[in-house]
């Protein structure tokens, strides 16, 4: 990938992808401390969001390595670590 992103940029990517995947969330505020589950994003949609974020970060790793984060912040942290190789 090109310039390394920081955590805030990854959070923004995730929120954009959540909104893209679940248009029903329009108008509802989404912050880094929210979990996708609590936002009502179902398991299929959660994987869509993660795949889309991986694509944008040009991150080619098994998805199972991204399992575990409790909220968007933690997911962004993990994506950042994985992106750094």
């Amino acid at each position: 990938m090109g310039n390394p992103l920081d955590n805030t940029e990854i959070i923004n990517i995730l929120i954009e992808e959540i909104r893209e995947t679940v248009p029903e969330l329009e108008g509802q505020p989404i912050s880094a401390s929210d979990s996708m589950v609590d936002l009502g994003v179902n398991s299929i949609e959660r994987s869509e969001v993660i795949l889309a974020a991986m694509e944008r970060l040009d991150l080619k790793i098994p998805m199972v390595q991204l399992h575990g984060p409790k909220d968007i912040q933690e997911l962004a942290d993990l994506l950042l670590v994985k992106s750094a190789g």
Partner: peptide, 12 residues
């Protein structure tokens, strides 16, 4: 089980 982990493994 864990639905997210299972879905991720399925996709991988």
């Amino acid at each position: 089980g864990d639905a997210d982990l299972s879905l991720m493994a399925y996709l991988d």
